[in-house]
């Protein structure tokens, strides 16, 4: 089939646009098709093209980004803004691509996987990919859209079987990311979302900032800024083995991680919440000796019925 070389025709496009509408005239369409056996394929091509570039446009923000911004996104560490409106469109487009046009054959079959604090669970996906959920985490999935995941809360490690034709898309808060063959970790809470790559590559906000992340890179989305930073690839997802590695991470985030991993609430008092910590915590050791935490984080750990609170030294 060498139909790629023939140009798309207006006539077929007209039909593709008309037949989508609610008052499509199927009899007239049948007659048009029967006139010439090649028309059906011309129509198919027009529909496919229409579908493709509609997804492209849907993925773009109505506010067009200057080309200079797109180039800047490739430089290191530009704290840049991104538009929230991109995200819905981008993910909708990915979903539309995953489900295809077969709306009536493939109705969404959503399901969710959730873990209690202190628990870990592995979700095996139909395509051989897997997601490891840390404690206190939740992901939404769909049996009929197996290449899409929505991270609701907590932290999880994705091991994605790469398929260039069907990129795996992850939605987390206002952010979308697409795998380019990959092991990566996604963590989200009310304040910020962090994506770290161990292997392969990930593209963040593919239709907006389009920030590529290579192994050893991470991005932090906070408010509407994106910040890129370096991580140790071996540390990505180390929580699976009970090791929590931090490199300049605010204590409120450290506390949130500990809550999930220890299975009991840990909070950072406002006075220390923005203080950063660099180092590795061993979950098992902390379970045995909670006092260790205060020494490591250089705070006072107050224990009461509500859990642990990290406070400044008196």
């Amino acid at each position: 089939m060498n139909d790629d070389s023939t140009p798309l025709d207006d006539e077929a496009f007209g039909w593709a646009l008309r037949m989508e509408g609610p008052d499509a005239d199927w009899d007239a369409f049948t007659l048009w098709l029967e006139h010439d056996a090649s028309r059906s394929e011309r129509y198919d091509r027009a529909v496919a093209a229409l579908h493709d570039f509609t997804a492209d446009v849907a993925a773009l923000s109505p506010v067009t980004v200057p080309a200079s911004d797109l180039i800047a996104a490739n430089d290191d560490m530009p704290a840049r803004r991104y538009t929230r409106r991109w995200i819905g469109g981008a993910l909708a487009a990915v979903l539309a691509g995953a489900i295809g046009l077969g709306v009536w054959t493939e109705t969404p079959r959503p399901y969710a996987v959730e873990t209690a604090p202190g628990e870990q669970r592995i979700v095996a996906l139909a395509d051989g990919s897997s997601i490891v959920l840390a404690g206190g985490s939740k992901v939404r999935l769909d049996h009929n859209a197996p290449r899409v995941a929505m991270v609701e809360r907590g932290e999880m490690l994705f091991r994605i079987r790469h398929d260039a034709a069907h990129p795996f898309a992850v939605g987390v808060g206002d952010l979308t990311l697409v795998d380019l063959g990959t092991v990566f970790d996604v963590k989200t809470d009310a304040q910020r979302t962090r994506v770290s790559v161990a292997e392969g590559a990930v593209m963040i906000d593919p239709d907006g900032a389009a920030l590529p992340l290579d192994p050893g890179q991470a991005v932090v989305a906070e408010g509407d800024s994106l910040r890129r930073l370096a991580v140790e690839p071996g540390d990505v997802g180390a929580w699976q083995e009970g090791r929590l590695a931090f490199d300049g991470v605010p204590l409120d985030e450290v506390a949130a991680d500990l809550s999930r991993q220890l299975g009991q609430p840990v909070r950072a008092a406002p006075a220390v919440a923005r203080r950063t910590f660099r180092g590795t915590l061993d979950v098992q050791a902390l379970k045995r000796r909670p006092a260790l935490l205060g020494q490591l984080l250089d705070v006072t750990v107050r224990q009461d019925a509500d859990g642990w609170t990290l406070e400044p030294h008196p």
């Binding site: 570039f53 492209d56 980004v65 797109l70 063959g181 593209m203």
Partner: peptide, 24 residues
């Protein structure tokens, strides 16, 4: 061969830019 990830992302970015320019 598989296009390197960086090339693909550059291409995708350029394409998005072209689509945006066309809409304008």
């Amino acid at each position: 061969q598989e296009q390197p990830a960086a090339d693909r992302s550059v291409a995708a970015r350029q394409e998005a830019g072209e689509v945006a320019a066309l809409l304008t």
